[in-house]
């Protein structure tokens, strides 16, 4: 008998038999297990939905829940991940997704869905997220007047964060990312970034900034410091995060093959970063 129910921790081994069908060369069993692990504080005590037939899991839709404070308001997020159904049960996949796609009060994200599923999400109110990447080139004329300090030492950073930023740092400390703080006499900007290699070149990709104004004001100083510190050739940032700010000496790169979707009645994509998502759990940054 077929049934759809919430996925619990004990489902992992059975769900893994379905997740294996992804046949992803870089995602191992222990990586998939992270979807069933509580890394972040949340109200929901489940990990998505499973489709069962005669007590055997034949489909899985993962959900990574998180709660964030943005502009002093609390928001609930759900990142849908690892949606897979055995071929013979494909007619049930929508029923399995239904409770997740219609959760009220949530900002729901789907990162890199299969091309053919995009119309399904669009039909249920999802929008395409701007995934353009801004590439910031080094500029040697630095801002010496209000020269900021770029802090890399975690102990020092922790002392300078507000509670919201501290939560982000604590929640991502065990993942493969860098924490950086720009300290200036007009304010601070906390950043989370990942370093990665593409075609033998190293980059830093900034995926969270707490203060657009400080970031754009001191971008040249920050870039130089990051390049020297991490031995990289370029600094990248998700373009939507700097919307409305002029980033000098930079250009936009359109990611043609990467579609991210979101559905929210309260937020726009400029508020949506990749923190608290499968990108961390499945380490997409290095794959």
């Amino acid at each position: 008998m077929k049934q759809i129910r919430k996925a619990v921790k004990a489902d992992f081994e059975d769900a893994y038999n379905v997740l294996k069908l992804f046949n992803h060369p870089k995602i191992k069993k222990e990586d998939w297990k992270r979807i069933f692990t509580d890394y972040w504080e949340k109200n929901e005590k489940y990990y998505g939905y499973v489709l069962e037939d005669n007590n055997k899991i034949v489909g899985f839709a993962g959900a990574v829940f998180s709660e964030r404070v943005i502009n002093d308001r609390e928001y609930k997020f759900c990142n849908l991940t690892s949606i897979i159904v055995r071929k013979e049960y494909r007619n049930q996949s929508l029923a399995m997704l239904y409770p997740l796609l219609t959760m009220p009060g949530y900002t729901i994200t789907v990162l890199g869905p299969a091309k053919e599923t995009v119309p399904i999400y669009m039909k249920t109110g999802f929008k395409i997220m701007n995934t353009n990447i801004r590439i910031i080139l080094p500029k040697f004329r630095l801002n010496y007047r209000n020269k900021p300090k770029v802090v890399f030492n975690l102990l020092e950073i922790v002392k300078l964060l507000n509670s919201e930023e501290r939560k982000i740092l604590d929640d991502h400390i065990n993942f493969n990312c860098k924490h950086i703080l720009v300290k200036s006499n007009i304010g601070n900007c906390y950043m989370v970034a990942v370093k990665y290699l593409r075609k033998n070149f190293s980059f830093i990709h900034i995926i969270y900034i707490s203060n657009k104004f400080i970031f754009s004001k001191f971008i040249n100083n920050v870039c130089m410091k990051l390049m020297l510190r991490y031995n990289i050739i370029g600094v990248l940032i998700d373009d939507r995060l700097t919307r409305g700010k002029n980033i000098p000496l930079s250009f936009c790169y359109k990611q043609k093959n990467n579609v991210n979707l979101y559905k929210s009645s309260t937020l726009t994509d400029s508020h949506i970063d990749l923190l608290y998502t499968e990108y961390f759990l499945l380490d997409h940054f290095s794959s």
Binding site: N91, Q92, L94, T117, P119, I120
Partner: peptide, 18 residues
């Protein structure tokens, strides 16, 4: 229904809706 029409998958479902 989606149970007895073999080709009824999520994509076809959305096509039908549209």
């Amino acid at each position: 229904s989606s149970d007895n029409i073999e080709s009824w998958d999520s994509l076809k479902h959305m096509n039908m809706v549209s």
